[in-house]
């Protein structure tokens, strides 16, 4: 494994640990308002400073990592379920099932995803669950294509014919033999997809239609920071940097896995 991949893995691991142990790591309650300490710059008592309501920024960032990562994982999980299932069906059954699913993917790819999400969120309420679902159902197409391509080549292998010969059902062949053997490239797509989902969530929250305050997410902390940009640089620097580093981490990890697999 090369150094960049390890670096990516380190970043990903670090933020997952921060998210899991948020209550232990955060020195303050992320919602605790302190009127006497509004917008104080980073100091020894508040290492990332405080926000415009006097809340400890470091604690909010730590709790925000939970939201950002959760949105990333669950949104990609939803996309993965849809993409793997439809890709496997299209690849295995071929014929009209393939035609219908592939044309549906073509149609889905015609929508500018971010604006589709904006429109849907504007109609529904911007809750965390809605955001995860909408990101998930608009980002499965790449995985479906990868899965289909893998299965097209796998299904001509002798071990699949052997399964048919011993009387295995289609469901057994797809779920136990084809999908597990086709997962490797999809895994790359999942890793890169998490980075994409974190970015979309941050973007939505920055525009004020993502995760709603007072629940902290990196995107809405950044959004609050925008209002006080001149008075508190730390309000934009830390969330911006966190998003940047996390996305970089997932991308490096994904690229590393891809390289390893192509070798």
């Amino acid at each position: 494994m090369n150094k960049l991949t390890l670096f990516g893995l380190g970043i990903v691991g670090f933020f997952i640990i921060v998210a899991i142990f948020a209550p232990v790591i955060a020195p303050y309650n992320p919602g605790q308002i302190d009127i006497e300490n509004i917008l104080t710059p980073p100091s020894s008592s508040h290492i990332f400073g405080t926000d415009s309501l006097g809340r400890d920024l470091f604690s909010r960032m730590v709790y925000g990592s939970r939201i950002s990562l959760m949105v990333g994982f669950i949104a990609v999980g939803i996309a993965g379920l849809i993409g793997i299932a439809l890709g496997a069906i299209a690849g295995y059954y071929g014929k009209w099932a393939d035609t219908v699913i592939m044309r549906f993917i073509d149609i889905m790819l015609c929508f500018p995803t971010f604006f589709l999400i904006l429109a849907v969120i504007a109609l529904l309420e911007p809750s965390i669950i809605n955001i995860m679902v909408i990101i998930g159902v608009t980002s499965w197409m790449g995985m479906a294509r990868l899965m289909r391509a893998e299965i097209l080549s796998l299904k001509e292998r002798d071990f699949i014919y052997a399964e048919k010969a011993i009387g295995a059902s289609d469901l057994r062949i797809i779920a136990r033999h084809l999908i597990p053997n086709a997962m490797a490239p999809v895994l790359v797509s999942v890793t890169l997809g998490i980075a994409g989902a974190i970015l979309v969530e941050s973007g939505l929250s920055f525009l004020g239609i993502g995760v709603q305050p007072p629940t902290p997410s990196w995107g809405n902390i950044l959004s609050e920071g925008k209002a006080v940009m001149g008075a508190g640089w730390w309000m934009m620097l830390f969330p911006g940097l966190s998003i940047f580093i996390t996305v970089l981490g997932y991308n490096l990890l994904g690229e590393g896995i891809r390289e390893k697999l192509l070798k």
Binding site: D158, Y161, A162, E163, A165, I166, G167
Partner: peptide, 21 residues
């Protein structure tokens, strides 16, 4: 399905005829 039991096959390439996982 019942008839399949009676009819089996052994393949040429033993590297391709077993699920690698």
């Amino acid at each position: 399905r019942k008839t399949r039991k009676d009819l089996q096959i052994i393949f040429q390439d033993p590297y391709a005829s077993l699920d690698p996982r």
